[in-house]
Design a protein around this nucleic acid. Sequence first.
DNA 1: TTAGATTTGTTCGTATGTATC
DNA 2: TGATACATACGAACAAATCTA
Lengths: 239, 239
Amino acid sequence: MAQSGTPVWRSIRDTLASEIAQQGLRPGDRLPTEAQLSARFGVNRHTLRRAVASLVDEGLLRARRGSGVFVAMQPVEYAIGRHVSFHQNLALAGRLPGRRVNVTARRPADPVEAQALRILAGEEVWVSEGVSTADDQPIALYRTVFPAARFPGLDERLSRLSSVTAALNEAGLAEFLRAETRISAQTVTVAQALLLNAQEGQPLIVTQSVNTDMQGVPVEYGTTWFLSERVTLITRSEI
Amino acid sequence: MAQSGTPVWRSIRDTLASEIAQQGLRPGDRLPTEAQLSARFGVNRHTLRRAVASLVDEGLLRARRGSGVFVAMQPVEYAIGRHVSFHQNLALAGRLPGRRVNVTARRPADPVEAQALRILAGEEVWVSEGVSTADDQPIALYRTVFPAARFPGLDERLSRLSSVTAALNEAGLAEFLRAETRISAQTVTVAQALLLNAQEGQPLIVTQSVNTDMQGVPVEYGTTWFLSERVTLITRSEI
DNA sequence: TTAGATTTGTTCGTATGTATC
DNA sequence: TGATACATACGAACAAATCTA
């Protein structure tokens, strides 16, 4: 029995953690199997699993049944703040931003959208839906709506240009601000799992945000479903 | 047949919505079964389900297979910003804040905590764990750690006083700032479900944050698991 | 496409030390 | 002191997902 105070599983945990921290194992690498590791540390498989479980909880490791235990990919750090652009944000994080547009349409605003954009329910909006990627890996689904009356021809700009910011700029809006972001969580549906190339039931971070022009008039209302596994949202105090 | 423009399901929807709005049904209440409701309105169960589905989509109702349809709790709007106090935050949202402390302990910091607090791994920290409530309903689990060397006797203050802010104030820290908040999502484990009185597999919003003193030195590192069903996080631009 | 081997996940059971009442 | 609960650790067996020949 462990005569010292710290349990065996805890010291194994710290050993594994420091080996990873010292870059002996890099993100995406597979750890030796539980059988091998428990043999190496001279403990029962349960004891080793206890150590691995705590690192999985911390997000340092990721276990896949039938496959192995892997060093977790470092999630994209996505800043939500006053002045945000998806492309800029990912470029700052050292990732290659991209998107795939699935839907571009013009239709009447539903009540929620109308309230957010401060237009009348039934007034028309441009809708753009698609998948956002980082380094060609899907990280989020988005749906964003714009008041159609204010931005004639925005659909063409949205499909031609690579970013929403660029499309709005060309439509005569040089700058805009994020007014408010509401954050909740859901689990992925079957349809979302397919689009994101993810597993059903995984947690999503859902943000709903309104962007306004410099006069405070809403110009965009967007919902984004971030795959939590691949993204961490960050708010920093702007001191 | 409804000769007028509005579909039958839509008027049923509006009827149900207004009954809820007029407090005939309160958050948490169970609606009559679909069979009972479709009998009451004299429509097929499919028609009634269309009405209920639209209210579920809006978030006003919540359907649980095998259990019933319930009036959704109004989620607490929880602002994350530069200057945050749980009690203050909930009071602003018109809710009664509370907490139940489950654990108060002193132990060596693990590597993650040490890095966040900018102390050495193994230096001792105070740990406080518990459940946060709004109007006596659990809305979040929290774990928060403080450098023990800087705050002798903090454990006693944490258990005696009703809020972390009050405990830190009494320990000589008049004011502190939130430096950064990282946001991710998980699904609730069995243990968490018990503490939160929630269903397994529900999504959680996880925030990890560091509070610093006015000189920028970390004084608290906290993780909070918000039950997404009961809380919406909000960041507002501080213009 | 199939079958089998590999690997993690889960659930039994047993035993021991430690803290609490 | 005894009784009880809890955390730790080992063992065995099987389920479920994944990979490969």
